[in-house]
């Protein structure tokens, strides 16, 4: 049977990808952030998953405002890297895991999550930047297959944090019921506090972010109980992306161990963070 081996929460700011693509990770502006990734990257390199389930949002690239799925799962054999308007990132195409995708879609439907499926999906920085955070030098191919899971965080009303957490729990159960012997990592991406537009542009709320970084491990129910208005007020209009961390957290078994975390301001206009958790398995379920 498949199992979740770890969960990674990480910001997916485009400029983090651009810093890697343009060899700027040693620049004084970027070095503290990438130094902060170091221990997590080393640990993940020793704990390679076969498949990564990456929970992210599209940013006006594969999904426009014609159709806005609340939750969607990519079901393709491969996914091209999107041109977001300034050329494609120089990273390998993403190889899918269509059998696992199919299984997830079916299991989620049976758990009353009415999932949109995507057979063609160009993946943008929301997915490729977290992959680069995991694996900075993929060469010709990423070291794992990927199942993209999309969450609408752009158009209001977004799904509730509680629903995201429940989706994560359903994804976790679905992964653990997949009959192949696969090691799976789950990525929850986006955040932390940031706001791009309006008079509150540039908002950073370190107090909220620190609370969230702690509670995502110890008290996810508390985070699931926050309203979308709470997220917008505290973490900014784009900080609501943090609900996607709860999908990752929900997919973990009862017991987990924090391997590493880091928090840095700013990455572009965002408070960037990473938190890595080892899944200690079903038997340890609380």
């Amino acid at each position: 049977m498949a199992r979740v081996i770890w969960g990674l929460a990480t910001s997916h700011v485009p400029s983090i990808g651009a810093a890697m693509d343009n060899g700027k990770t040693e620049d004084p502006y970027w070095k503290p952030l990438f130094d902060g990734y170091g221990p997590a990257r080393e640990w993940m390199a020793e704990h390679r998953p076969d498949v990564a389930v990456v929970v992210y949002n599209d940013h006006a690239n594969a999904i426009d405002l014609d159709l806005v799925p609340t939750f969607a799962v990519g079901t393709a054999e491969s996914y091209d890297v999107a041109d977001e308007g300034w050329g494609r990132r120089p990273v390998p195409p993403v190889v899918g895991a269509p059998q696992l995708s199919e299984h997830l879609v079916r299991e989620l439907m049976d758990s009353s999550f009415d999932i949109t499926t995507c057979h063609r999906l160009d993946v943008d920085h929301g997915l490729t930047v977290p992959l680069s955070v995991y694996c900075p030098d993929p060469g010709d191919a990423w070291p794992c297959a990927v199942v993209p899971v999309l969450v609408n965080v752009i158009q209001y009303p977004q799904p509730t944090a509680a629903r995201c957490y429940a989706l994560g729990e359903a994804i976790g159960r679905a992964i653990r019921s997949f009959p192949q012997d696969l090691k799976v990592a789950v990525f929850g991406t986006g955040g932390m506090s940031h706001q791009l537009a309006g008079a509150r542009a540039g908002l950073i709320n370190e107090r909220f972010d620190r609370m969230f970084l702690d509670a995502i491990e110890h008290d996810p129910e508390k985070l699931a109980a926050l309203s979308r208005e709470d997220y917008i007020a505290e973490a900014g209009t784009e900080g609501i992306e943090l609900i996607m961390w709860l999908v990752m957290r929900g997919a973990m078994s009862g017991k987990l161990a924090r391997i590493h975390d880091t928090y840095h301001v700013p990455a572009s206009n965002t408070a960037a963070a990473l938190a890595l958790f080892e899944d200690l398995g079903e038997g340890a379920s609380a």
Binding site: Y29, S193, R200, L203, A233, V265, P266
Partner: peptide, 14 residues
Amino acid sequence: EFAAAMRSGGRKFG
């Protein structure tokens, strides 16, 4: 100026 405000920890509200 905006970039400098971000570098100094971002803009705080409330």
